[in-house]
Design a protein around this nucleic acid. Structure first.
Length: 430
RNA sequence: UCCUCGGUAGCUCAAUUGGCAGAGCGAGUGGCUGUUAACCACUAGGUUGGGGGUUCAAGUCCCUCCCGAGGAGCCA
């Protein structure tokens, strides 16, 4: 028997095939039964008429529970009465396992309950669609960078020191020494960028901050390109081409999935370069003149970011932040030493910062001074300082949080639905 | 860590001033040949998050602990 996936059914109309899947829902009316079967690629309605199957098979339908694993065999036909336009006239059913009473019904559930059952929740239509879009976003990140001659260089997860010396990191015992789970691969990418010119790392990142908001996870994935001989402007140009490409790919490949999750795509279609660019100082002015009080020198909070982003209809690049609120490795603006050549990209619709990056300090004496100002150990950063001793060049890069990008592109209220098994302050299971 | 809100059947929720613990869905049984979260009838299902207190009487009021959600700070 020809085994097919549901998303490939159009090539099998009027043919006898086998579909392997799970029972999504069923309805029966005495002498006819409708089995909604999902196989991961889609959902098909199997129509079982009592007169078309053996009595044994028809009786067995009564035993089927939601999420029971089964194969249905029969002829694929076009029928407008089926939601997908296709249905199967079932001639035989193979039952693999009768599922226990399934906790997730097709009715409403609370998030807490769904999160406790995340291992099952991923089977549902919307979660399935989100995971497909996430896949496409990740693939688009890789495709864009690969097609632009970036080399993927993985960076370590165990690190001896914190990258920026600011965030709380997860500590772990490393054969009697303390090691930290990486909060960024950037410092290492700065080393490999000098080897390979254009590089990126793509991996999990860990932050031990007890953040309790819809934008935070303790474990998340980040893609971080780093380019030698690139200044802040090159960096901003790269960031906007990168994000525009990702959105374009999702709109192209995941139309169906965006429909399933009710995403208004008109706002995504707008995401085409060039993106607006605005300095931190101008942004502060705009906030104040729009009636939102903000003091120069403070970092933007979630609310400030939302107000700012709402002034534009596409992602906005905010650059040249006060150096005092940025990491030690940021290069200062030669026109104003108070400013750092950093850039953040704020997504529209209140999704906040999806990209953070900038030009790195490349002068040995200056970065040594910054290390001391931030009370970081020169010894710990010896290898990093070496990069400024042997062939130092202007270089820049940024990091994009995958889950924040997924939340924005999918229009999700909460970041926890963007990753298969979210890790938050209060959740380590499942 | 701080602020706010919440925890009642497997799930989603109701329960008037402190006065008999309820519904829908799911589950079980029966019915129905075109259903679209199918429908109709019946049945089972409860230590109201834990502990303590006030009261003739507590899901409801008080204390305390636990768990969760939203927000702040921090950040992608």
């Amino acid at each position: 028997m020809n085994k097919v996936y549901i998303d490939k059914l159009s090539g099998h109309v009027n043919k006898e095939v086998q579909i392997n899947g799970w029972l999504y829902n069923s309805r029966s009316s005495g002498k006819i039964a409708f089995l909604m079967v999902r196989d991961g690629s889609g959902i098909i309605q199997g129509v079982v008429s009592k007169s078309d199957v053996s009595e044994e098979v028809f009786t067995s339908i009564g035993d089927l529970t939601q999420e029971s694993s089964l194969s249905i065999i029969g002829k694929i036909v076009e029928d407008s009465r089926s939601e997908s336009g296709y249905e199967m006239h079932v001639s035989d059913i193979i039952i693999h396992q009768i599922a226990d009473e399934y906790p997730i019904s097709l009715k409403e559930h609370g998030t807490s309950f769904l999160m406790d059952n995340r291992h099952l929740w991923v089977r549902s239509k919307k979660q399935n669609a989100i995971l497909r879009i996430r896949h496409t976003i990740i693939k688009a990140c890789r495709d864009f960078l690969d097609n632009n001659d970036f080399i993927l260089v993985d960076t370590p997860i165990f690190t001896p020191t914190s990258c920026e010396g600011t965030s709380n990191l997860f500590e772990t015992d490393y054969f009697g020494r303390v090691a930290y789970l990486a909060q960024s691969g950037q410092l290492y990418s700065e080393a490999t960028a000098v080897s390979l010119g254009r590089v990126y790392c793509f991996g999990p990142t860990f932050r031990a901050e007890k953040s309790k908001t819809r934008r935070h996870l303790t474990e998340f994935w980040m893609v971080e390109p780093e380019v030698a001989y690139a200044d802040l402007n090159d960096n901003m140009e790269l960031a906007e081409r990168f994000v525009a490409y990702i959105v374009e790919r999702v709109l192209e490949i995941r139309k169906e999935e965006l429909k399933i999750i009710d995403r208004d795509t008109s706002k995504l279609e707008n995401v085409v370069p060039p993106f607006p660019r605005i300095s931190y100082t101008d942004a502060v002015e705009k906030l104040n003149s729009s009636g939102h009080k903000f003091e120069w020198g403070d970092d933007f909070g979630g609310e400030d970011e939302t107000v700012l982003a709402e002034l534009f209809d596409k992602p906005v690049l905010v650059h040249r932040y006060p150096a005092a609120i940025k990491a030690f490795y940021m290069k200062r603006d030669e026109n104003d030493e108070k400013l750092a050549l950093g850039v953040d990209m704020l997504a529209p619709e209140g999704y906040g910062e999806i990209i953070g990056g900038g030009q790195r300090e490349d002068d040995y004496d200056t970065i040594l001074k910054r290390l001391k100002e931030h009370k970081l150990s020169e010894k710990d950063f010896k290898w990093y300082l070496d990069l400024r001793r042997y062939g130092s060049v202007p270089h820049s890069g940024f990091g994009m949080g995958i889950e924040r990008a997924v939340a924005w592109i999918c229009g999700l209220k909460h970041i926890r639905e963007t990753i298969p098994f979210p890790r938050t302050t209060h959740r380590l299971e499942p």
